[in-house]
Nucleic acid binder design. Structure first.
Length: 458
RNA sequence: GGCCCGGUGGCAGAGUGGUUAUGCAGGGGCCUGCAAAGCCCCGUACGUCGGUUCGAUUCCGGCCCGGGCCUCCA
């Protein structure tokens, strides 16, 4: 199966060929830990989780290294701590924990490594020194700046030339910059700001250098895939690319740059600055299953904008009901130990076409519902579950999916069902329907089947 | 202003130079005491105007509309 991925650098789908099939390496930009992750932050996590799963399927689980960083030094963190009076370490550790919990609720696997910026200050300093030495950076007014003019190719990833950037500039240029396009590698810290000793005094890193330093540390100078949200193309990834390329004297850095589209709300980009966001946690607290949120995030192609609404999450939940319904109906059938279905692998191999993969899963689901014998059922059930594993879906016990959250009422529900079965046996359908209506009013739907009566939460 | 994306049936959302996904919602049927679930059938969509072509939703160009980037952002 040929894997094809869209490369932001060439703006085309390209056949993916790993540098080393024994160790395929991917880096994805993780969160700045100052606040709960909103659904827009969750999108790349889920999208690249599917890619991680696919790569593990293709190259073997032990032959993929996935690094996703935690940015735990950044001005927004400092601002948040100052605002609330909470210690910085407390803000970052609390937020990191929340991030882990929320992403786990969305069914995302842990990355192979999760480097923290504050653990890599020495590597950043070393890289900055190297950039200064090679004439790509300069010290000015306690800052170290990257010299954009020192890199003729600057702007290739985002498609912006330095001249355009300056022409369209929306912000005032700091006086210590030699050129308006230059960006900060290192900046001085005041006594109350977090800081580390460096050749340029006590200070802290600029935003972009951490990813250059950490990807090199954990994946090497040259690796396969670098991912993130579209909004990172500029300036973050453009600058990261510039730093790494210049520090490595032009040797290759990343083979494939991948960027997921925005989550939008009523057509507009979701962002913290616009305030039109909702957090993953909010949705979970509203009672939406994490798996339904995950499916909603995978319901559109990753490069397209995605409008996340409660309606869409609801529809995703209904789709999961359909899958789990098929699995529940074959609960007593052992699934075959199947490889993921070819159609699903093919869809995902075509630049992560998750909607097509989902369509294929629905075809399998329908076939499973129709299957006439245990062998066929076992085969299709195995195929569906294998597809689910690749997508990070259908990992729950169907009974838990349908009955989870019903708390301690299960016993009483079973008692009422037994009473209804007795009434039906006695052909007392009025009483049977009364019991069913009573349960329906509590959000419990009954299903009478050949093997008896089952129930689920509506 | 410069540079990028998009506009598909009621909704969501893939895809394709000719056979027109998938899910939801809707209509009809089978099954059921009645339902639910499941299964079957149905609805022929691709912004607009031109061009290329035997044939275009799919390729090319103009236009209209929406969104994004141009140093806060996943």
């Amino acid at each position: 199966m040929t894997l094809r991925l869209h490369n932001t650098l060439t703006r085309r789908k390209q056949v993916f060929e790993p540098l080393d099939a024994e160790n395929v390496r991917m880096y994805v930009c993780g969160p700045t830990v100052y606040d709960l992750a909103h659904i827009g932050n969750a999108r790349p996590v889920v999208v690249f989780d599917v890619l991680f799963r696919l790569l593990r399927q293709v190259y073997g689980a032990d032959h993929v290294t996935y690094a996703r960083n935690i940015t735990d030094v950044e001005d927004k963190i400092i601002a948040r701590a100052k605002e609330t009076g909470e210690a910085i370490e407390s803000v970052t550790s609390r937020t990191t924990q929340a991030y882990h919990d929320d992403m786990a609720a969305l069914g995302a696997l842990q990355p192979s490594v999760e480097p923290r910026a504050t653990d890599h200050i020495a590597q950043m300093i070393a890289m900055i020194e190297c950039l200064i030495e090679r004439g790509h950076a300069y010290v000015a007014d306690g800052h170290v700046l990257f010299s954009v003019l020192s890199m003729p190719d600057y702007g290739r990833l985002s498609g912006h030339s330095r001249d355009e950037l300056i022409a369209g500039a929306r912000v005032d240029v700091a006086p210590y910059k030699k050129d308006p396009a230059d960006f900060v590698l290192w900046k001085p810290s005041t006594a109350e700001q977090p800081g580390w000793d460096s050749p340029w005094g006590r200070g802290r890193p600029g935003w972009h250098i951490e990813c250059s330093a950490m990807s090199e540390e954990h994946l090497g100078e040259h690796f396969d895939i670098h991912g993130g949200g579209q909004d990172l193309i500029f300036p973050h990834h453009e600058n990261e690319l510039a730093q790494s390329l210049c520090a490595h004297e032009g040797r290759p850095f990343v083979n494939v740059w991948m960027h997921n589209g925005y989550v939008v709300v009523e057509g507009e980009k979701m962002s913290k600055s616009l305030g039109n966001f909702f957090t993953v946690r909010q949705l979970l607290e509203e009672g939406w299953p994490g798996e339904a949120i995950r499916l909603a995030l995978l319901s559109g192609h990753y490069r397209q904008p995605l409008d996340i609404t409660r309606d869409k999450i609801k529809e995703s939940k209904v789709q999961l009901d359909r899958f789990y319904g098929a699995l529940r109906a074959t609960a007593d059938i052992a699934p075959s130990d199947a490889a993921p279905p070819e159609g699903v692998v093919a869809a995902l191999s075509d630049d992560l076409n998750t909607p097509e993969a989902l369509a294929e899963m629905h075809r399998i689901g329908t076939a499973l519902n129709k299957a006439g014998n245990a062998i066929e059922q076992g085969r299709l059930k195995g195929a569906l579950l294998a597809a689910g594993r690749l997508m990070g879906l259908l990992g729950q016990d169907p009974e838990d999916w349908f009955k989870g959250g019903s708390g301690g009422e299960a016993e009483e529900i079973e008692r009422l069902i037994a009473a209804r079965i007795a009434a039906r046996k006695a052909k007392n359908f009025a009483e049977a329907d009364r019991i069913r209506d009573e349960l329906a009013a509590r959000g419990i739907v009954l299903e009478d089947g050949p093997q008896g009566t089952t129930w689920r939460l509506a």
